[in-house]
């Protein structure tokens, strides 16, 4: 367990990306610049959603904050400290299934405490508690393939949160789920988040989801060399219900404003043929 954020840290944002550029070497020579000139700050208890057209490098940005990718220029500061290697203070929720398929739900959650040196019996007890919080107490002994897509996401959520990370990085986590399950998962996420308000970077291509969840929506341009082209505060009251907030007139006003920016980029991406591949 990390010690509570100290006073000095409280002044520093959870994540600060400064002048980040990320370039990939392509097979057969040449390079591809995914993102450039990225300046992005996420406060210690701020929920930031990042939207943009398909293939604009949203996930790349998340990987830079996670330490899974090293920026080719600029850098990431985590609570004021320059990140080198993996970001030990962050939890990551992947779009794809990332659970260990050979472990049951409870083992998948409990194993997340092993790197912290928590004894197995205690880890299992806390794992059961977390499975309960995500509504899967009765499914502890199921293997991932015996769970539905939504249930697997719940396990992954519990696996991430049990470590009590101060930063949550989420890469279109509810993307593969059906519409109703997405809403349920969105509300579950907001409930859990409201309890201790971690810093969140939430990548999605669904603008409505972004507005419903976040305090701020950041819009990225079409790739390659995507930049941030918009940064909108979402001043909707909390607690929110994902399904109901969409009917709020204020929601529509925000949606309209952001969509004006996003639409241009989506069209650009589509014209480049990026719209065809996910």
């Amino acid at each position: 367990m990390h010690a509570p954020a100290q006073v000095k840290e409280a002044d520093s944002p959870a994540v600060r990306l400064s002048q980040v550029a990320i370039t990939f070497a392509l097979k057969g020579g040449g390079t591809y610049q995914a993102v450039r000139d990225i300046d992005l700050t996420v406060g210690a208890s701020e929920f930031v959603a990042i939207v943009g057209p398909t293939g604009c490098g949203k996930s790349t940005l998340l990987n830079a904050a996670a330490g899974l990718l090293k920026p080719s220029a600029g850098g990431a500061d985590i609570f004021g400290e320059r990140l080198s290697g993996l970001n030990a203070r962050a939890g990551y929720l992947f779009q794809q299934d990332a659970l260990m398929p050979w472990k049951t739900a409870i083992d998948n959650v409990a194993v997340a405490l092993e790197p912290k040196g928590v004894p197995r019996a205690e880890a299992l007890a806390r794992g059961r508690e977390w499975l309960g919080r995500v509504g899967l107490a009765a499914f502890a002994d199921r293997y991932p393939h015996m769970l539905s897509g939504g249930q697997r996401k719940r396990v992954a959520l519990a696996q991430m949160l049990i470590r009590n990370p101060q930063i949550l990085l989420m890469d279109e986590p509810f993307g593969p789920l059906d519409a109703q399950t997405r809403q349920i998962m969105g509300n579950l996420l907001l409930d859990l988040w409201a309890q201790d308000r971690k810093a969140v970077m939430f990548v999605t291509h669904d603008l409505e989801e972004a507005i419903a969840l976040a305090d701020r929506v950041v819009v990225m341009s079409a790739g390659p060399a995507a930049r941030i082209v918009g940064d909108y505060p979402v001043s909707l009251p909390r607690p929110r219900d994902i399904a109901e907030i969409r009917l709020d007139p204020a929601f529509h006003a925000i949606h309209k404003a952001i969509w004006a920016t996003l639409r241009v980029e989506v069209q650009k991406a589509y014209a480049q043929g990026e719209g065809a591949n996910a």
């Binding site: 996670a66 899974l68 993996l86 970001n87 030990a88 962050a90 939890g91 990551y92 992947f94 794809q96 299934d97 990332a98 659970l99 260990m100 398929p101 194993v111 997340a112 092993e114 790197p115 912290k116 992954a156 696996q159 470590r163």
Partner: peptide, 12 residues
């Protein structure tokens, strides 16, 4: 993905 996830969980 499973590997990246395990690493993000802090596994050595």
């Amino acid at each position: 993905v499973v590997l990246a996830n395990a690493r993000m969980l802090g596994m050595n």
